[in-house]
Amino acid sequence: MSSLLSLEGVLLPSAILGGLGLGFGLVLALAASRFRVEVDPRVSRVREVLPGINCGACGYPGCDGYAEAVVSGQAKPNLCAPGGADVAAAVASIMGISAEAMVKKVAFVRCKGSPDVARVKYFYDGVLDCREAVVVPGSGPKACPFGCLGFGTCAAVCPFGAIRIENGLARVESLLCTGCGICVSSCPKRVIELVPQDKAVRVACSSRHKGQDVKRVCQLGCIGCGLCARVCPEGAISIADNLPVVDFDKCTSCGACAQRCPTRSILMAF
């Protein structure tokens, strides 16, 4: 023990490093008080009412970044998707401004091409992750280049456990979904989109191909016939790239489009 605790072997080196550390620590402590930057107290109060999951849905790096952006006036108080209307109201009251009405959005998988209705090009025997599967030539086993691959990348990244893989397709449980949008950006096929929760119309296909090409690979794909656009009493639907685009400001969730759709590509969520 005495050799272990000898002056030369242990104590002096410890003292030197400890002294160095202490010296630097003192300098840093001095600098911290000398160069202190006054932080707006509202930043920490805004930060406290935010959920603190750092999902990044607001477009800022984490809840801290968003709190700073709100207080400095760069960001609106209603950008926190997981927090919803409650957090928006709380943030707005701290900032002393009124919160704009915030429409809750939920994720929706725009594909109905389960393995029994959609053709498969080849047997994929690789890593069970969509981001890996799209790297394979042909970008995944599905014949339709736009469809959901169903390997569950979105389910794995969802922080709320709101996505499950059912029958080879990702399905969002809209009650659990907070609309943070992490799945949207993680999906290599870009087949998930955020839709307003209070509107029922959901376009369940992403194929921009022409009708006959869609029919060749999937029985339930949208053929871009435009019937929905014609029957919509509000004129809320237009066709772009062989797909219906719903203007949710005009949509009244009447369901006329879903009834007339020949391929059942438009669904009613409720």
Binding site: F24, G25, V27, L28, A31, A32, F35, V37
Partner: peptide
């Protein structure tokens, strides 16, 4: 320590 210090001073 230096990086910390530089960060504080720059801020």
């Amino acid at each position: 320590a230096l990086v910390q210090l530089v960060e504080m001073v720059l801020k």
